[in-house]
Simulated assay, not measured.
Amino acid sequence: MLTQQRKHLLLDTLRREGRIVAADLSATLGLSEDTIRRDLRALAAQGLLQRVHGGALPASPAVANFAARSQLQMPGKQAIAAAAAAMVQPGQVMFIDGGTTCQQLALRLPPTLQATVVTHSPTIALALVEHPRIEVQLLGGRLFKHSVVAVGAATVEAIGRVRADLYFMGVTGISARVGLSTGDMEEAHVKRALMAQSAETWVLASAEKLHAASPYVIAPCSEATGLVVEPGTTDQAVAALTALGLALVRG
């Protein structure tokens, strides 16, 4: 089998089954695991999949820059945002992550809501400028332009001085096997710090992020409180995640 034929077969398997197990595919195709791993490395370098121990998972399309992500699954993100906004109680302190779904959440917080939003995202802060009753605390640090968020030691230190009731987390990958992941190491550090300082962590999980993986793991899925998913998400689609104890809220 030619190299290009093998790669097409690998991608077809990934689309059909949602993952690649190198040992199983080796036995099925009569190819060495070394050959399959070499092909997986090449496909990962092209951004077509994410290698994990023993095989591969789909690469999340949510690692694109902020402008490109703004065009992904907008109706689904809006439904998730509305459901998340309805979870907030008066007087609560919440962390809101950066990202396009979190931006939609900020825009949907009720005008009568009195609460405090702590964020490392200038985009989230700007979305709340006209909100009459929400106090906004903007955390500083080095601006990571790709995601329009502050990162670095100064950001993590500032997070450590806050105790939040809720953290609405944005990720680029959610996998029962790999965990919650993102495309940048410093962002992963910041998200871990936000989780550690929050009583509850709710992951905003649009469809393209489910069962996908990105290079940098934030935490095991079981460390989050739950997922907020799109209205049409089936129980089967999230069964592996709810089996870990995650609560589920549909948009």
Rank of each mutant, 00 (worst) to 15 (best):
85 A>R: 04
22 A>R: 01
134 I>W: 11
86 A>P: 12
129 V>Y: 10
132 P>C: 13
42 A>M: 10
184 D>T: 12
220 P>N: 06
96 I>N: 04
101 T>Y: 04
169 M>R: 04
94 M>S: 07
184 D>H: 14
67 A>N: 11
214 S>G: 06
227 L>N: 07
24 D>R: 11
242 T>R: 09
117 V>R: 00
222 S>L: 13
137 Q>T: 12
2 L>Y: 08
62 A>V: 03
47 G>R: 08
146 H>W: 15
57 L>C: 01
17 E>Q: 10
233 T>Y: 04
230 E>M: 08
173 G>F: 05
233 T>A: 05
230 E>R: 01
235 D>H: 08
193 A>E: 12
21 V>W: 01
110 P>E: 14
186 E>D: 08
207 A>R: 08
112 T>N: 05
84 A>N: 08
105 L>T: 02
176 A>E: 07
242 T>C: 11
192 R>G: 14
126 L>V: 08
38 R>T: 15
156 V>A: 09
17 E>G: 03
204 L>A: 04
30 G>R: 05
73 Q>R: 13
61 P>K: 01
184 D>E: 15
216 Y>L: 05
105 L>V: 15
237 A>M: 14
41 R>A: 11
163 R>F: 14
233 T>R: 01
134 I>G: 03
241 L>K: 00
101 T>Q: 06
200 E>H: 09
139 L>A: 03
27 A>E: 08
190 V>W: 10
165 D>V: 06
73 Q>V: 14
26 S>D: 09
3 T>W: 13
167 Y>D: 09
169 M>P: 03
123 T>A: 15
36 I>T: 06
207 A>F: 04
117 V>S: 05
70 S>T: 13
45 A>K: 10
249 V>S: 07
30 G>Y: 11
49 L>V: 09
18 G>D: 00
136 V>C: 11
230 E>N: 05
153 A>V: 14
194 L>N: 01
202 W>S: 03
117 V>H: 00
129 V>C: 10
212 A>G: 01
7 K>C: 11
243 A>H: 12
191 K>V: 12
187 E>W: 02
12 D>I: 05
13 T>C: 07
100 T>A: 13
19 R>A: 04
69 R>T: 08
236 Q>C: 02
16 R>L: 04
